[in-house]
Design a protein around this nucleic acid. Sequence first.
DNA 1: CCCTGATTCGC
DNA 2: GCGAATCAGG
Length: 236
Amino acid sequence: MSWTEERIAKLTKMWEGGSTASQIAEELGGVSRNAVIGKAHRLGLKSRPSPVKANEAKPAKAKEPAPAPRKAAPAAAAPAAPAPQAKAALPRPEPRGTAPAPKPAANPKPSTENSQPLPGRGEPMPRIHSVGPGGFVRQGPGEQQAPIPPAPPRRRVPAKPSPEVADKTHLLDLNDRVCRWPMGHPGEADFHFCGEKVNPGFPYCVEHCGRAYQAQLPRGARRPPPPLPFGGPRVR
DNA sequence: CCCTGATTCGC
DNA sequence: GCGAATCAGG
């Protein structure tokens, strides 16, 4: 897979929206989590709370003279690059998990009254209003309101369909690591998937691999076919 | 163990 | 430029 414009755009949007690299990789498909991270860094959209970089400003921690760790020699103790990047001054969305829910600051009194004078000057600005098409009232000079906060990051898959499957593996919970063997009938309220850890390299867990992949017996020695996924033809 | 992002470096 | 391997914290 190559990084087309669309894929880069999606990566950027999801990354800035707070999705994890794994989620982005899964969504894009054909790339690994590392690929996503690598691309994100190459694109310059770093940052976001990293579990491993929580600390900062280390005054020369006396570490053991660890030998050259893995491969080639590290580039010595290069001075920390200034990293000249501070373009996107947009307010960072809160880390995942928190629900900032930027409330528009319920103003007990509308600001149309006290926001007229500019800060730092006693001169009240002239109150100029006009009504636009549709009846909205235009702001007057010096009346700027706080910028609308960016929309909070949205979980793409927040809600479970129903309580009875709240802890079951549902379609949107599927990934490469859980067994996709269907349990029950699609469309029914409790339809879900096995969800066990997969037999590595297979889409099913060990048990269901045994059901999905069966050796062919010689003709004439066939046993009755095993139960099909979904429990077989619907019985009513 | 699982997860996360950061970094390195051979390709 | 790409991304696997690796590191390192939660």
